[in-house]
Computed example of a mutant assay.
Amino acid sequence: MKATGIVRRIDDLGRVVIPKEIRRTLKIREGDPLEIYTDNEGEVILKKYSPIGEMGAFAKEYADTLHQVSGHIVIITDRDKVIAVSGASKKDYMDKALSQELERVMEENTIVFVKSENDMSSIPIVEGDTTRYTAQIVSPILSEGTVIGSVIMCSTESNVKMGDSEYKLVQAATSFFGKQLEQ
């Protein structure tokens, strides 16, 4: 366990403040859910909770199905990292931190739709991603009005175009995941 040298007292309501430096480093935002664990040595462990991360195996199967239907790369993320990949190398994406551009798109709850390689506005998916995506759809997953992740369909092949069918597949996926997590 990493020592920070920061000490905080518990207040009369049992609350403790997580220092700003730690929240910034771990990308913990106001309102983010945290899981609380204890271990055998009496330590309390706080872990950022990812509701969509709990659906990892299901997300993988969904990504595989979307890839089989569309023929494109499909990536599913939570707010911080990639949780499922199909149609691309898992080592290039799985469990990697999201790019700042993707985090911004999710934070602003916007949709990126790059229809073909003539449109140069694709965004990197993970930190350090230098891949040129020739077509890309990025859509945030909303649950109870809060962005909890994203579904991405993309291609690196030349002469690939994405249209309404791909857009609707991605929208169906984001809607499905959002509704599953609201139950």
Score class of each variant (00 low, 15 high):
P140W: 01
K47M: 13
G87N: 08
K81L: 11
N109G: 02
S165M: 12
V160Q: 03
I75S: 04
Y133R: 03
V7Q: 12
Y62E: 14
G5Q: 04
T146L: 07
I18E: 10
N118E: 13
A88I: 07
T38Y: 02
S158R: 13
R104T: 11
S70L: 03
E30M: 07
I73G: 00
S70E: 05
K20V: 11
S121L: 08
M55H: 06
A84D: 09
I10H: 07
K115L: 01
V44Q: 06
Y37N: 01
E35D: 13
N109C: 03
V151G: 00
A172W: 10
S158H: 14
Q171S: 15
K48Y: 11
H72Y: 14
P124T: 09
E35K: 10
K115R: 15
I10P: 05
D80L: 13
E54G: 05
K90P: 07
Q171M: 14
P140Y: 00
D12F: 09
D11Q: 06
P51W: 02
A97D: 14
R24V: 15
Q180L: 15
E103N: 03
Q136L: 05
L34R: 06
L46P: 08
H67L: 05
V74A: 09
A3N: 10
I75H: 02
S70C: 06
K161W: 01
E43G: 05
V82P: 11
K96P: 04
V114H: 05
K81W: 09
V69Q: 10
I10A: 06
I10M: 12
S158D: 11
M120D: 14
K161F: 05
G145S: 04
K179M: 14
G145D: 00
G53R: 05
E144F: 04
E117D: 03
P19Y: 13
D78A: 10
D11M: 08
D11A: 06
N40L: 14
V74N: 10
D164F: 02
I75K: 01
I28H: 01
F177A: 13
V147M: 11
K60L: 13
